[in-house]
Amino acid sequence: MNKKAVFFDVDDTLYDHLSPLRSALMEVLGLPKDFPYERAYYLFRYYSDLLSDEEGLSAVPDQAKMERMRKRRFMLSLAELGVNVTEEQAGRLQSAYLKGQFEIRPFEGAVPLIRWLSEAGYVVGLITNGPMEHQMSKILAMEIEKVVPESHIFISGAVGVAKPDPGLFTHVNASTGTRAEDCHYIGDSWRNDVVGSLGAGWTSIWFNHRGAKPESDHQPHHVVSNYEEIGKLYGMNELGK
């Protein structure tokens, strides 16, 4: 019998990625509560992905290039919102942001859903871009390793290929003994998660909890905005029940 599988993205899919960014901006720059943090987050992710691609950092991390990228993404994204920061300020923002990332908690319903899927017989795992140690630190902070086996956690920095490259998804299939047509992928990023999973022949579930607009003509199979909606796709009517 072919194994059905559900894999999750990590950043802004398992936890609120905006929260540590907002905290860093308020702490270091003293920005007001009514600052457009949602827009800042969108730009921050955009430049993070763009600069990482330019430097090839998602697949092959380089410490010096990584440090430069992390500062530049703050400087470029905030400049679009009329806030100019120095390289020194960008470094302090990164430090505050990093600290906040290790104080994260999973979205409500995420862990119960993972448990339910596992008990229902699905292969459940994670696929995320970034350096191995950095991403694992987040996973450990959320204690997701207690419900997802290490053998089902795939991090681009360790594999050597990053989303949206279909090769990462193909690697997951080969490693877990699953087939593309039996795999679902849940993620928030249009470029990395929707385009990447569709390119690999997987069923794509766009976790669009921020009300983002599609960035291309690709068509995800499902669009959801919370974990209750995800649970209903699999016949789980009440998360945790």
Rank of each mutant, 00 (worst) to 15 (best):
A158I: 01
A158C: 04
W202F: 14
K138I: 06
S52E: 12
N226A: 14
M66H: 09
C183N: 15
F154P: 01
L93M: 06
V148P: 04
W206A: 12
I230V: 15
G121W: 05
Y97D: 09
S77Q: 02
M26I: 12
A24M: 10
P131T: 08
G100Y: 02
F207Q: 06
E238S: 14
I144A: 06
K232W: 10
Y122W: 10
N84V: 15
A174K: 12
Q63F: 13
V28I: 15
D182I: 00
P164H: 00
H218E: 13
F44H: 13
L233K: 02
H222M: 11
L239R: 00
A79R: 15
E27P: 02
K138V: 12
S52L: 05
E133G: 09
S23K: 15
K232H: 12
V159W: 03
G91L: 09
L14H: 01
M136E: 03
F207D: 06
R45D: 11
L18R: 12
P112Y: 09
A59K: 08
S95I: 06
G231C: 08
K138C: 05
A120F: 02
A64H: 10
M1H: 08
S48T: 11
K4W: 00
G125F: 01
L21H: 07
G160D: 05
M142Y: 04
R22A: 10
H218G: 12
C183W: 00
L78R: 10
N208I: 04
E228R: 15
W202R: 04
H17N: 13
